[in-house]
Design a binder for these strands. Sequence first.
DNA 1: CTAATAGTCTACATATTTGGTATATTATGA
DNA 2: TCATAATATACCAAATATGTAGACTATTAG
Lengths: 140, 140
Amino acid sequence: MLTRRAKYGLIALNHLADRPAGIPVLIEDLAREERIPKKYLERILLDLKRHGILQSRKGKGGGYFLNRHPRDILIGDVLRIMDGPLAPVPCVSHTAYAPCPECREEASCRIKKVMKKVRDAIGTVLDETTLEQMARNRRK
Amino acid sequence: MLTRRAKYGLIALNHLADRPAGIPVLIEDLAREERIPKKYLERILLDLKRHGILQSRKGKGGGYFLNRHPRDILIGDVLRIMDGPLAPVPCVSHTAYAPCPECREEASCRIKKVMKKVRDAIGTVLDETTLEQMARNRRK
DNA sequence: CTAATAGTCTACATATTTGGTATATTATGA
DNA sequence: TCATAATATACCAAATATGTAGACTATTAG
């Protein structure tokens, strides 16, 4: 399940993708228009900034804006930042591999074999979808 | 992420799929051999029984065994019982559809469009994999 | 019939995650 | 230098995940 945090993040990025590039949007406006709790959104945006997705300016005329063109932002990367690895078990994660704590012999693990397929299926969708594609159907 | 509960469930089902059909296995043996906390496992097995995956017998000579042939048990169904719907958002679930609480206009929701693809990708793997297939690589 | 066996039910306990708030502090531009 | 707006830190409450404890019930051997 996607967390609310991830949904808020995607909503915010779509919101920003709809505006002209490089023009800052106030957290407050974003929060109000998208009905997201402001203080919570602050932390989400900051996190996305720290990971290079967003950029910000302080003071008057400041706000948040995309750091890259929407076509260069992968939804998979956004969701990794928001919710952690895409993989359903750590032992099949591309970006955050770790052996499963309970697992005894990973090489022959039956769960791993199936979950690897699931991870790849998810990755194929999310790492081949850009913010631009996602935002394609603009509201008028 | 799969919960530990789901992993335990899969491990238990694989364990049972390895034995001759219809011969009961004690919760206690299963728990010990697979290193799963017994009381926790009890509830997991009971849940799988209630959903028709397992069958049990009480008293001496009792225990748990598969209610159907492994080829008729879908991993997707098992995971739904253990962890809930496969879909990353309720609005794209096949088995437990519900509108997302935060969502305003579902028809045009951009998140929904992407997540539907993800759900289908996951479903294609898990609803086409049987316990028999999963258990194919037997340990010797 | 009764004792041992083995699953079932209910209630707690405890840790982690999630979603959110409150209050400062820091940087920027007019 | 003042208003603005992002940043940082610390909390907090509710939900979920992962167990544990103990009583109860059904079954079978003898």
